[in-house]
Amino acid sequence: MLIRIDASSDISIFEQVAAAIRTDMAAGRVRPDDKLPSAREVAASLGVNLHTVLRAYQVLRDEGLVDMRRGRGAVVTSAAGDLTELMGDIRSLGTRAAALGMTPDALASLVRDTLRSTT
């Protein structure tokens, strides 16, 4: 599992951490029933506050992607496995957008803006 964060980005750190884990879930690198590393370890490795990582884990829990269990920590749910089904759609969307000359960032902005306005 790879977590990359950009301290200079506008996106808050905890959102970046959650996004990185979500990407690993969608790519199948993090699988249902896997145990996420302890928030303490992740915070120490990234050099960020423990509560920032905890907040990221809570985001994932609110999305139903992890279960926080006493004594076991954050365990990946089966819903995370369903994310992998999105990968095919994402790839074909990406190919079509590229054919139109769109960068991945531009496509991401378009997706975000479109879906935000419809929910």
């Binding site: 599992m1 790879l2 977590i3 990359r4 964060i5 950009d6 301290a7 200079s8 980005s9 590393p37 370890e41 992740v42 490795s45 990234l46 050099g47 960020v48």
Partner: peptide, 12 residues
Amino acid sequence: NLGEQERAVWMH
């Protein structure tokens, strides 16, 4: 390619 402001961790 890690940017100057980027941090990362890989765990397995």
